[in-house]
Design a protein around this nucleic acid. Structure first.
Length: 865
RNA sequence: GCCGGGAUGUUGGAAUUGGCAGACAAGCAGGACUUAAAAUCCUGUGGUCGAAUAGACCGUGAGGGUUCGAGUCCCUCUCCCGGCACCA
């Protein structure tokens, strides 16, 4: 008999499948009666290291789904592409002293070779890389559409900067101790103009639409928290006038969710970034020398801290009294104003009211600096006298003037109303979500297709002054003035190609290296035609991954006309008219590390595109499922430095691709983190080997003549068919595999027990997991002409078994089972009689009175005192 | 601290969603084959008491509760993993 040697036949089938175009995407329009399934895994960044066994897990998961749906008569879109722009690629290239333009294709080639070898059923005609101009011309075009609708603006934003390397840095290049990871020198911040996306305008819809998604609970929760909606009130505290001083603003605004505690305010705290502090720094407000120095010193220190350091290492609250005062809007009392770095400039109004009696943090702060603590909420649990901790619960107001006696809930409404009539406050909603910085001062990204004209800027001309298009969003004054003279590159000039340059390390000024390329920099103004400068910032890694799932439906390497030759609204609409019915993505599988950013950004783009009339749906991913991480055998992360990395190539060489695939599906529930085990992999290999040997051993001509099948085995087969059919769309791959193993254990005991037709059914359900072995038997032994992967998924026959077993309990404890004919399942007397025939049960019930509880077909329970 | 997920034999895990806990796999032990080893096959394998494949009791992180019946539901607590973190 032939031995199971996967290396002998696996590669052969790869060629056949390619030649026969087994995994080609069917045109959707041709068969409107068939359901579509768009099956997608988060596409990889192709690093030099090649595929990780963790990649194999997720891609096998989508592959099993895709194969299952394909065999079940659905039209399947199952593509793969490469997310190759971004910092990791650039840094890897710097290290290897290569240009990423050369390095990326090498990495892709290796990834692709490994994926093909694993038998993933991608339609490779749909492959693209985010770094090809043919792709990123659309990324740039989308940027321009978003700009035109007013979704982008420019603002000064601090970036991390390494004074020693003279380069701008990404947050991930900064170590937790505030030093640069490459040179270990301390970093600072530098303020540079950046493009920002107005994602906050979509906060409510991003929150609201979470309801319609079939996503893991945890992810939905994390997105909610990230958006962080909170409803409360804005309160204006007028500044106490100082003769001869003009403050930049009349009020210190604070945001609070507990306006009911307003009468308990004993101080205000502003962030070091607050405008009031700037007033002090610019000496608009004269303070005594020592006080000025103290504040300046405190603020300087805070600014130098990273957000990380400021929050992580500063457990003890610190602050400085500015000696300035504000006026309480309702009591007219004077309230001291402090500065403290626990208040963050970008959340709320960058200032808070301190209510020590009813907020834990404020309580701590007040104790340290001996601020008065004033109780304004009565709480039945709290005794009178000095508070030992803050009372944060809702209650009834006391010491609150006309509002005393109201409940917190009523008071929040009444006090807000009162403030509103006084023009000193209003109802307000804030979000944790911030606008999204979309500029990178880096080489390896899509060039931002914008041009700046000094001449037009001087004349205060914006894009909307010269175009009829209306913007959908209102700009604040400063935001608009920052856009004077900025115009998008003409759409017909796209792609704006990233130039090949030999030295692409970040520039000394913190600017992008593109700023040094004269030919790139120089442009003419789309409005007045005078010399202008190109934007030299590039887009972040997210840009390509925010819409790649929209591109797969229309993408074709062979037929380039599908993705159109020009970038224009008409071209986009033409593509979408044809291919949009593939969208949205039906099954999106990926790691939990993308729970927030990638998934939120993609949702945002889709909503904006839908508002622009460029898409007809509002959510990109109908179903999201998690894949758990694969750890090394020692339960640590796989890492070269630990020497515990498993290379898929080695595994395939020794056990074959089928065994690796099967093991990755069997190892644990798909979403669980799991440690690699070569021993357990060998178990899967043995299983496949036994399948091979069984199908080779049986004399199929003989079986065909033998009309008597083993009914028990047939029933077992049908149970297995059912189990696998139901488990796959529930992403319960591990139990699907287990049930097939169970079946094989039975089948081996009686290899003549199934007809050829039934034996083939088992092969078919195994096919998504082990595509090579099953194809080899399907065509080799059963002489089928067409691939097993294009065969029809087997229906299971409902076999109602004649007899069922019912557990018998006494006082809820399992004691025995009885067998009962299915026709008698409703007959309690019969079941009781059968149960009482058992010696053991008789013994337990001897001389006792009892009741009987019978749950039809499930259990009978005798209950006595 | 907050949010989310989890804790089941020696190990990974299963349990029809409230009805026979430990499927399937790994490991281990014993046996067969072999000069021997590997591979393969067979048998056993939660714990305690028992000669027992007789039977009994205990057993799903800990404690309590609901129920005829709890790994599954409720309350309290412990520990582990992931995310966020002075969020007003």
């Amino acid at each position: 008999m032939k031995k199971y040697q996967p290396e002998v036949f696996e590669e052969k089938w790869l060629d056949w499948w390619e030649k026969e175009e087994v995994y080609k995407t069917s045109p959707l329009a041709s068969e409107p009666e068939r359901k579509k399934q768009y099956v997608l895994s988060m596409f990889p960044y192709p690093s030099g290291a090649g595929l990780h066994v963790g990649h194999v897990r997720i891609y096998t998961g989508t592959d099993v789904l895709a194969r299952f749906f394909r065999m079940s008569g659905n039209l399947v879109l199952h593509p793969m592409g490469w997310d190759a722009f971004g910092l990791p690629a650039e840094n890897a290239a710097i290290k290897a002293k290569k240009n990423p333009l050369e390095m990326v294709p090498e990495n892709i080639a290796n990834f692709k070779r490994q994926m093909k070898r694993l038998g993933f059923s991608y339609d490779w005609d749909k492959e693209f890389t985010t770094t090809e101009p043919k792709y990123y011309r659309w990324t740039q075009w989308l940027f321009i559409q978003f700009f035109k609708m007013g979704l982008l603006y420019k603002n000064e934003v601090p970036v991390y900067y390494c004074p020693s390397c003279k380069t701008g840095l990404a947050e991930e290049e900064v170590l937790p101790d505030g030093t640069h990871e490459r040179c270990q020198q301390p970093i600072t911040r530098k303020t540079l103009p950046q493009w920002l996306f107005r994602i906050t305008s979509y906060a409510d819809r991003l929150l609201e639409d979470l309801k319609e998604l079939d996503w893991p609970e945890g992810i939905i929760e994390m997105q909610k928290n990230w958006i962080g909606k909170s409803v409360g009130a804005e309160v204006n505290f007028p500044l106490k006038k100082i003769p001869g001083v003009r403050f930049s603003y009349k009020f210190v605004k604070v945001f609070t969710t507990r306006v009911d505690t307003l009468f308990g305010v004993t101080a205000l705290v502003v962030a070091p970034e607050h405008w009031l502090i700037e007033d002090i720094e610019h000496q608009q407000v004269k303070l005594p020398k020592e006080k000025f120095a103290e504040i300046k010193d405190y603020v300087e220190k805070a600014k130098r801290k990273l957000d990380l350091t400021r929050t992580d290492l500063e457990k003890e609250k610190t602050g400085v009294d500015t000696t300035l005062k504000a006026i309480h809007p309702l009591t007219n009392e004077e309230i001291p104003i402090w500065v403290a770095d626990y208040v963050i400039g970008w959340y709320g109004e960058g200032a808070v009211m301190v209510v020590p009696a009813h907020d834990e943090r404020d309580f701590e702060f007040a104790r340290k600096y001996r601020l008065p603590i004033r109780k304004v909420i009565a709480n039945p649990e709290a005794k009178d006298g000095e508070l030992s901790q803050a009372l944060t619960k809702f209650g009834v107001l006391v010491n609150s003037g006309e509002f005393s006696g109201l409940t917190s809930k009523e008071a929040i409404e009444k006090i807000t109303e009162k403030l509103q009539t006084l023009n000193l406050g209003r109802k307000k909603t804030t979000y944790k979500l911030r606008d999204w910085i979309f500029s990178r001062q880096r080489y390896w990204g899509e060039p931002i297709p914008m041009v700046f004209c000094q001449n037009c800027a001087r004349k205060k001309i914006t894009y909307w002054d010269i175009q009829r298009e209306k913007k959908s969003f209102q700009f604040e004054n400063e935001e608009l003035s920052n856009l004077y003279g900025w115009f998008p590159v003409s759409e017909s000039d796209l792609p704006l190609k990233l130039p090949y340059i030999s030295s692409y390390e970040p520039a000394e000024t913190g600017e992008s290296p593109l700023s040094r390329i004269k030919e790139f920099l120089e442009a003419s103004c789309p409005n007045c035609g005078k010399p202008a400068k190109r934007e030299t910032d590039t887009m972040p890694n997210w840009a390509g991954s925010c819409w790649y799932f929209l591109a797969f439906p229309f993408w074709s390497k062979k037929d380039q006309s599908k993705s159109q030759e020009v970038t224009s609204k008409e071209a986009w609409k033409a593509m979408m008219n044809h291919y949009q019915s593939w969208l949205p993505v039906d099954w999106y599988l990926g790691g939990a590390e993308h729970a927030v950013l990638h998934l939120l950004y993609s949702r945002f783009w889709v909503k904006a595109l839908s508002d622009l009339g460029l898409l007809t749906f509002r959510e990109p991913f109908v179903r999201l499922r998690h894949v758990g991480m694969v750890l090394a055998e020692d339960h640590r992360k796989m890492s070269k430095s630990f020497g515990n990395v498993i290379n898929p190539d080695d595994v395939i060489k020794e056990y074959g691709a089928d065994a690796l695939r099967l093991y990755e599906m069997f190892m644990a529930p798909f979403s669980s983190e799991i440690a690699w085990s070569t021993k357990a992999l060998q178990g899967c290999y043995r299983f496949l080997k036994r399948v091979w040997e069984l199908y080779n051993r049986v004399n199929w001509d003989q079986v065909a003549k033998n009309s008597k099948e083993n009914l028990k085995l047939v029933a077992k087969l049908n149970r297995t068919l059912k189990k696998v059919t139901e488990d796959i769309p529930q992403i319960k791959f591990n139990t699907a595999v287990a049930s097939m193993m169970e079946f094989l254990n039975e089948y081996e005991k009686n290899p003549q027990g199934l007809s050829k037709a039934r034996a083939k059914k088992f092969l078919q359900i195994l096919a998504p997991f082990a595509p090579f072995l099953t194809e080899e038997i399907w065509r080799g032994i059963f002489k089928e002409k067409k691939s097993i992967h294009l065969s029809q998924w087997p229906e299971f026959e409902t076999v109602t078994e004649e007899e069922i077993e019912i557990p018998v309990q006494v006082n809820g404890k399992f004691r025995a089972t009885i067998k009962i004919h299915l026709s008698k399942i409703k007959n309690l007397n019969e079941i009781k009689r059968e149960s009482l025939k058992i010696e053991k049960i008789k013994r337990y019930l001897k001389g006792k009175e009892y009741e009987v509880i019978y749950i039809e077909g499930k259990v009978i329970n005798f209950v006595h005192q």
